[in-house]
Design a binder for these strands. Sequence first.
DNA 1: GCGGGCGACGTACGGCGTACGACCCGGTTG
DNA 2: CAACCGGGTCGTACGCCGTACGTCGCCCGC
Lengths: 255, 255
Amino acid sequence: MASERRATTDPARSLAILWRTREPASRSAGPGLSVDRIVRAAIDIADTEGLDALTMRRVGEALGVGTMSVYTYVPGKAELVAVMIDSAYGEMPHPAVEGDWRARLERVARDNLALYQRHPWMLRAETTRPVLGPHLVAKYDRELSAVADIGLTDVEMDAVLTLVLGHVKSSARAASEVVDLERETGMTDGQWWQSHAPWLETFLTAGAYPTAARVGTAAGQQHGAAYGPEYAFEFGLQRVLDGISVVVAERATAG
Amino acid sequence: MASERRATTDPARSLAILWRTREPASRSAGPGLSVDRIVRAAIDIADTEGLDALTMRRVGEALGVGTMSVYTYVPGKAELVAVMIDSAYGEMPHPAVEGDWRARLERVARDNLALYQRHPWMLRAETTRPVLGPHLVAKYDRELSAVADIGLTDVEMDAVLTLVLGHVKSSARAASEVVDLERETGMTDGQWWQSHAPWLETFLTAGAYPTAARVGTAAGQQHGAAYGPEYAFEFGLQRVLDGISVVVAERATAG
DNA sequence: GCGGGCGACGTACGGCGTACGACCCGGTTG
DNA sequence: CAACCGGGTCGTACGCCGTACGTCGCCCGC
């Protein structure tokens, strides 16, 4: 899938579709294809069957249309994925700005986590630079307002947002991996650790890595208790917010 | 590449190679293939030509060997990538534990960043749960010692490490995207922003997203100054460490 | 000296993204 | 009213990919 990278390379191609420069064809009669119908179908496939199942043939099939008909509306798979991502951003809630900055940032974090939980394929599709679609820009603007007027410079505001969203994505990825593992192996994360403990013990019993073994076991048992990733998300989020509050406090006192 | 996921599913297959259960064949004569030679060749390809260029055919070719010969030593591509990753972890420095916890964690972060800069393909290959290879376990043990004995519980130690490493990976990904973009388009990040500013302005001039436009421009100019991702890394790292210091201080006073 | 086993690998299959050109049909023009 | 033409549709085909399978030849132990 080298092409997914090329999409980033020629932004005009992606941007034209993202911002819907083209008018709806509406020549009626035929299957009545459209970018939106294609994107909806594609998202549906990715949601329910995973990103690997998203092929152009599969999309055409889902729409009762030939594979190549899809290419009439979308220049390639990479661009389709780009529009899917932007479209997903469009479904996010637009909460009113309320509470202090910390409550607002926390809300941003939770909304993003929920998005990734609803569309786990985004975590695997967003490996490349995000394409600047309309919904992403709107989201960026909305989320910036959570950290506006608290004394940060523009660059700091951007950095704060990047930090929080990065943490969310990391946590979401970890959580998604647990879910994947359960679906694919049919065992819970706890069962997985248990069944492979003997394997690992044969390597670790030499006592070479006592700390790793002890802490790994502790963390693994958290996973067994089925709230490992959630704990990591909550713990990390509070740490990140604590760290941000240090700068905010600095700015408040120093000027 | 659905197979990359399957690797995670059957860990015995990966673990056997990772921990080198098989003895070196050493029947000499022939091309003298081995897991290590294959992994070295594969890492070399991924380093210099990118992950997309890493195909089994290409690996065989680089070793002067038929494509399928590779499969004698490695069950599949997913497992090859798993060994590549663990092998890369093996090259990391083993710094002596010195300084306070903050200095030590900072060192951990910088070492990991350097690793990702040397092997950017890891950022795209590590989408799935990391496979527990020997070098990863050693790394985990080493890095845990940076946060040992400062009053944290085992689970907290794991969470702290996860948080820091997550931030490193996010930052590294952002930085890597900038590098990719430059290599592929032949223009620097600053030039890219400039050349596409008109495009974006046509959508943003409506004044719909004033904050996004202003902050985005500010952040973009940082990128133009060629230290955007570095700034995000440094800023985020200090914030994360600040946040961690809050818990550490709590534990120190409260017991 | 020889048989067995294992490393090497040629061929082939199914699936992917997508280039290309043929078809079909509605709307516009003489 | 007929001729045309442009755009939506799509069947075919190409060049990739990962890899299953079967064969061949060489080295080693007897």
